[in-house]
């Protein structure tokens, strides 16, 4: 009920001794997933996915429903506990939490990891009893131990950054969906993350409101933020992403530069998927 009860007690995951980071093209990746497996109640849905993300890279993760995109994304900050595999940030192995799996980090190193990784949800998950400003202030004060003044100043700055100056004192219920999602982005940015994860950030928005959010994300990308975005917005994948990763049935089927995967996919799975979503 409160803890994500998904995930199954397995042989202690993610607790292998740290291996040395692969020297891939751009040096040590900011994030590296090695052979990540995820299962729900003994049923494996992600079958050993490896992926390296370079600093400043924008990656679009696309694929049909049920492919395991959300599961993979959520495993990066251990909202889902991988049943096997390793997650490295800047070459350092991240220790997940074995045993009790809750949404809340129970150990210091996982909490530190969570502070480095911002997350934006499809359903925004704003705190409904707090104003926009308070939403952005809360974790700065109570998780980063910033002073109230510093946090408020930073929150105003981040809200301005996402185009919400003048909306600081509104409650989420009084904001449009697009505004709410931008508040959520500001809330994550105020934590100074090294990496931002987005899980279908525009899927619950009307198209014209989704555009506000996509524009904000475009700006973040152009400012050099490292972003991993699960999306059904093919334009975003084509125009903004540096690299597109196509997943199906719990595995990466195809990945490469955005224009290659989007315009000249080589796998049948990707061709079928892309023509189906474009035909909509």
């Amino acid at each position: 009920m409160f803890h994500s009860t998904q995930g199954v007690q397995g042989p202690d995951p993610v607790a292998f001794p740290s291996g040395e980071a692969d020297a891939t093209a751009g040096g040590t990746p900011i994030l590296e997933l090695r052979d990540i497996r995820i299962e729900y109640k003994g049923h494996e849905v992600v079958h050993g996915v490896s992926l390296a993300v370079q600093r400043g890279e924008v990656i679009a993760l696309i694929g049909p429903s049920g492919a395991g995109k959300s599961s993979l994304l959520r495993s990066i900050n251990f909202l889902e506990q991988p049943s096997a595999g390793q997650i490295l940030v800047n070459g350092q192995l991240v220790q997940g939490q074995s045993g009790s799996r809750g949404a809340i980090a129970r150990n210091k190193s996982l909490a530190a990891h969570r502070r480095d990784v911002g997350m934006v949800f499809q359903q925004f998950n704003l705190f409904p009893h707090l104003t926009a400003l308070e939403n952005v202030v809360l974790a700065q004060v109570h998780s980063l131990n910033r002073s109230k003044e510093e946090a408020v100043a930073r929150a105003r700055q981040e809200l301005a950054h996402v185009g919400l100056t003048g909306h600081e004192d509104k409650y989420p219920a009084k904001c449009s969906g697009g505004q709410q999602q931008r508040i959520a982005i500001a809330r994550a940015l105020a934590m100074d993350p090294q990496l931002m994860l987005f899980d279908e950030p525009t899927s619950s928005l009307d198209p014209e409101l989704g555009v506000e959010v996509l524009n904000t994300m475009k700006r973040l990308a152009s400012e050099g933020m490292t972003m991993l975005v699960v999306t059904h917005e093919m334009h975003f994948a084509e125009d903004v992403a540096d690299r597109v990763v196509f997943m199906a049935d719990g595995a990466i089927v195809e990945e490469g530069p955005a224009e290659q995967v989007m315009l000249r996919p080589s796998s049948e799975r990707a061709k079928t998927f892309l023509s189906a979503v474009r035909g909509r």
């Binding site: 009920m1 909202l79 809340i104 997350m119 998950n125 705190f127 809360l138 998780s143």
Partner: peptide, 27 residues
Amino acid sequence: GFRAVPQGQWEACGTLALSYWKSLRLV
């Protein structure tokens, strides 16, 4: 009452690295 608060609220707290008691008390 506690059960009626959506799981997403706990997840939001978790991704912001709030502690258990702070999540409970503040959110």
